[in-house]
């Protein structure tokens, strides 16, 4: 469950990236987050993982009020959330296997289960057999899928993605979105920020549309060229 209650985010310098945003995404639901460039999509996702904190209002995730979450509780909180970044954030010096296994290592999972879990995650994103390769040896789409495998390897209750189809072709883009729908079908709460209306129409999921920091209750297509 993700709930925003009258959330405003003002960056140092005074720019308000989010203005009085309120919404609720129930557990197990999937939604798209859309809006023009600079509308505040990434900012909204950053508030959910506490990369940034709300200036006003409350963000509640899985019954935890993030406004009051102390710093030392962040690591345990973040383990409930899988995040797919637009720039992948893979570790270039580590193999695909090691990259995907990292959340397991960090969270202290049993090392005995690690290979099985990593292979299961890689299998879902269609990268089985590339465990020993390094991220830079992979295509952009493959790197993105390694990022997805890493995000889901611990079976988090929430999955966030920021422009996950940013630099892949249409077919790959569809595959990736289908993956998110698949994770949602097994009970994961999914929130995907995207520019591409095509996916929104194809998957028919609810849409949160941002315009200059305001959450607007209108059809998404009016707000994107």
């Amino acid at each position: 469950m993700i709930a925003f209650n009258d959330v405003t985010k003002r960056y140092p310098g005074g720019h308000e990236a989010l203005k009085h945003v309120s919404f609720k995404l129930p557990a197990g639901e999937m939604a798209f987050l859309t809006g023009h460039s600079g509308a505040g999509k990434s900012t909204l996702l950053k508030l959910i993982v506490v990369i940034e904190r709300a200036t006003q209002g409350q963000v509640v995730v899985n019954e935890q009020n993030l406004t009051r979450l102390p710093r030392r509780k962040l690591p345990r909180f973040r383990r409930q959330i899988g995040v797919v970044f637009q720039d992948h954030k893979l570790l270039p010096e580590q193999t695909v296997f090691e990259n995907v296994a990292l959340p397991l290592v960090v969270s202290g999972y049993s090392p005995k289960d690690t290979p099985r879990r990593v292979r299961a995650a890689l299998d879902k994103v269609g990268l089985l057999g590339k465990e020993a390769m390094f991220p830079l040896m992979l295509s952009g789409g493959e790197q993105q899928r390694v990022g997805i495998a890493r995000a889901v390897v611990t079976r988090p209750s929430i999955l966030l993605a920021d422009e996950p189809t940013g630099n892949v072709d249409a077919a790959m883009s569809d595959d990736i979105m289908d993956l998110f729908r698949l994770f949602n079908q097994v009970g994961t709460t999914v929130l995907v920020a995207t520019h591409e209306l095509r996916h929104i129409e194809r998957l028919g999921k609810p849409v949160l549309c941002l315009d200059d920091g305001y959450l607007v209750d209108r059809p998404a297509d009016q707000w994107i060229d």
């Binding site: 030392r72 973040r78 954030k89």
Partner: peptide, 16 residues
């Protein structure tokens, strides 16, 4: 720095 950021993002503790 990059590794540390990523590890913090996926829930690595300061101790770790």
């Amino acid at each position: 720095t990059h590794e540390i950021e990523v590890i913090k993002l996926i829930g690595g503790t300061d101790r770790f």
